[in-house]
Amino acid sequence: MSQQEEQIECWFLIPILRNSVPREKHPTELWDVFHKCLRDLFHALSGPVDVFRERVKIRAIEDVRKTPGSWPNEQGEIINDESRKYTLLIAEHKVDDLREFLEKVANSFDQDEILCVVRGVKKSVLRRKQAGFLDGDLWSE
């Protein structure tokens, strides 16, 4: 008998420019590292076939630019970076895992904040140095 877990929609933004001046685009392979980590975080390909496999499903990846004033950062500054928006369907109990993952994303992608919305509620993730970097990040010190 399959175990069904409710999946909820959440999205987050990763700006395409790094914060440090001069603001540069991310290293060529960093997006690949990110996708691998995202897949590894939520994926369970092994196990008996009758057990519900928690898998992340990407609903969409879009290039967006935030509407000015729509999402100020924690300092109240209006950041209007062009970003990649990931819309996911994940099991609800994985939301905390996602937030921990986004802390590493913030470090690897050199961002002070990753805007994240879960079920319409802003749950942004702030940079936390102790969280470390994405596994396979070859570019961060």
Binding site: I16, K25, P27, T28, D63, W139
Partner: peptide, 9 residues
């Protein structure tokens, strides 16, 4: 939108 690779990459 992606940095072209340089020698570091």
């Amino acid at each position: 939108k992606v940095k072209p690779p340089d020698y570091q990459d």
